[in-house]
Design a protein around this nucleic acid. Structure first.
Length: 138
RNA sequence: UGGAGCGGGCGCAUGAUCGCUCCGAUUCAAAUCGGAGAGGAAAGUCCGGACACCACAGGGCAGGGUGGUUCGUAACGCGAACCGGGGGCAACCCCGGGAAAGUGCCACAGAAAAUAUACCGCCCGCCUCAGGCGGGUAAGGGUGAAAAGGCGAGGUAAGAGCUCACCGCUUUCAUGAUGACAUGAAAGGCAUGGUAAACCCCACCAGGUGCAAGACCAAAUAGGGAAACGUUUGAGGACUGCCCGUCCAAUGUUUCCGGGUAGGUUGCAGGAGGUGCCGGGCGACCGGUGUCCCAGAUAAAUGAUCAUGGUUCGCUUUCGGCGAAUACAGAAUCCGGCUUACAGCUCGCUCCAUUUU
RNA sequence: CGGGACGUAGCGCAGUCUGGUAGCGCACCUGAAUGGGGUUCAGGGGGUCGGAAGUUCAAAUCUUCUCGUCCCGA
């Protein structure tokens, strides 16, 4: 069994970090959720989770957050992996920069375990060629 | 056996693997090991306190809250017991100051909605063809949510507390109770419609703001104060009329000081604490003693996966098998209440009906 | 964490303080006017007053609880 620790340094903490990602990041729209990505200058990926207040009930919000975090714990390099899976070009996961990720959830989100989220996110990356938009635009 | 009332409890369990937060130990550190990790409502934020800061000579008004009595409590709008009224066959449940201090309101209907009054009536008198006029009366009809004590007898032209008995009401007295109040007696002779979750009156209560309170440490940037050393001037002021010089001023550098933002630390987990036993009390609760330490996050920890087993439902139906479901809901300074939400399981006491003995 | 406001016809709002009749504009329907449409005029329909209890003879209105939406302060 492999170890997948998730310390707090792998989470976004500050309001200005969130603002930077919202302003500079690339957005992927899923079903009642979206993922925002931007490269950072730290040597790890960092995750932030934002759940809309219309998701009623603190229990439901907390549970959604924990499931997303569990998904991230098991797939900490999913942005790099996803970008490579979405392009036809030559791509190595280790050459890509580390990312800041924000996972935003809206009303109607109904994925109930990490496996469903993994499948949904993989499908999402395959539909979008992020490699091009990040590194070929200039 | 069925129905009902009241008061409690539990609210999935066990194991494995991978994670998260805090505490303790080892340790330079990294890390390792050990321990702990959501609720009965953590919720709504409706009350009350603790704690903190601010304000404050004393008193009052306005505005707000509470509302039978006596206890309990740190305190309460909470709880207990009792009192009175109402509902229920019953267990039991619900309600609670003042309407004979004052003001307002009571639609429509109705003669009249509180100063009393008279539509249909009843009775008497006069005029008189039907009927009309004047007076007496409020028992009956009618209206309305509500109609001026109820009911019976006497009384009367017809009636009326006009008189009387009983009930109710008011006042006074006596007895009992800490008290709400209860019981009894006498007198009055009907005066007192409802509404205070209308204004109001009476009694009692209360400074304000809230842990993002408050305390401490403290970048960057801008600006403030002080000191030292320089610089500039045919722009200014003072010593002095002029020059030099000095001081102020302007400006630069350095150092120091104070406030203080981001950020960090603390407040922040031993408490009106839980629980066993003993004692006091009808009870709420209180006292003594033993024992336990029981979440502490901050873009905010308490999770994921798998296995086995409960419980409930559906299908199948011989054991059994398969599938589904497993409530309401997540700590944010803490505590005492209230209110609201809640799948299902379960315990105790009591009442009613039926059956058997 | 603390404070405040709102919910009434399909839509936007009065009425709530001071309890008895729910009203206005737009929209909708019918008719008139026009060759037809628009404008205009006349008439009409449509509301569990967010929900539940309570006070009262009577509640959109008063009281309590509750649901939803929005806003403000830190």
């Amino acid at each position: 069994m492999k170890f997948f620790p998730l310390p707090k340094s792998s989470l976004l903490k500050k309001s200005r970090d969130y603002k930077r990602v919202y302003q500079q990041g690339k957005r992927l729209q899923g079903r009642n959720y979206s993922i925002i990505l931007t490269p950072n200058n730290v040597d790890t990926n960092r995750l932030g989770i934002s759940i809309h207040g219309q998701v009623k009930g603190a229990v439901r919000r907390n549970r959604t957050k924990r499931i997303i975090r569990e998904f991230y714990r098991l797939n900490q390099t999913f942005p790099q992996k996803g970008i490579c899976s979405g392009t036809v070009e030559n791509c190595s996961e280790d050459d890509l920069p580390k990312m800041d990720i924000i996972f935003t959830v809206r009303k109607g989100f109904d994925l109930k375990n990490p496996i469903e989220i993994t499948q949904s996110v993989e499908d999402l990356f395959k539909k979008n060629d992020l490699f091009k938009s990040f590194f070929k635009s200039d």
